[in-house]
Amino acid sequence: MTNTIVVTDRLTKRYGDRLAVNDVSLTVRRGEVYGFLGPNGAGKTTTLRMLLGLVRPTSGTATILGHAPGETGATARVGALVEGPGFYPYLSGRDNLRVMARYQGVSDNAVEDALRRVDLVERGGDAFKSYSLGMKQRLGVASALLGEPDLLVLDEPTNGLDPGGMADMRKLVVDLAAQGQTVLLSSHLLAEVQEICDRVGVIAHGRLLAESTVAELRGASTLLVRAQPVELALSVSMQVAGDDAVQLTDAGVRLELPEERAPELARALVAAGADIHEIRPTERSLEDVFFEMTTDQEENR
């Protein structure tokens, strides 16, 4: 069995003179949680729709589990929740899932399992139209889980959820990943992706700006030093970490130095007679990286 579940090659979608998705080439590997990251309107949903065969690409190709998007070999093995849950408002949550179960050829027992996994068993008999936004979202996830797909595509799954619901959703994804489920998850909430994704693709204005692991994107960890006098702290830091690895910022002196060398730095500062107020490791959040990237792109436009 191949280890790549999704491969796209220069996938492009043009609506009139607007490029919604522009030359996106991404890869999702078996067993990973892939975060598809970008602001609203960046082209995430359009890309996912193309992967699911709902929208035809203007150019470029996509392969899902070895099939073209929309072929039964692909759609039957993919569970999806794209741009909000779409269900029959007059049917109960349970009946909605039964309709999907019939489409998939799985039994009604699978429906009960799916309801249990998103904690909707008790409200399963109520009409979909009476559900809160969060319950509708959970039913969408239940429908995606139905039939044990090889690939789970979740478009903004925490949309409309309260903090508790968000935490539950994250836990669900983490649990699924632990069982080896491949998940392709889109989000505009960077903190969310940072916690649960193995790899991320960053998209803005239809272009894939970067694709790598979360750790790679954030880069090496840094140390922040606040010490007096600043000039002395700066020169000592340069001796320890090298001239290019030191930066003077508003917060203090920032060093590209692994955390393990913090004691060495502290000793050198003390020996030089500096007063140390604080030495702590800092990490760039995905958010910092993301804003850096999107700002760079704005400037290049």
Binding site: L52, G53, L54, T72, T75, A76, V78, G79, A80, V82, E83, G84, P85, G86, F87, Y88, V99, M100, Y103, Q104, G105, S143, G147
Partner: peptide, 10 residues
């Protein structure tokens, strides 16, 4: 949005 849902069932 139910067309979207049923067209991704298989």
């Amino acid at each position: 949005g139910t067309w979207k849902t049923v067209l991704t069932q298989g």
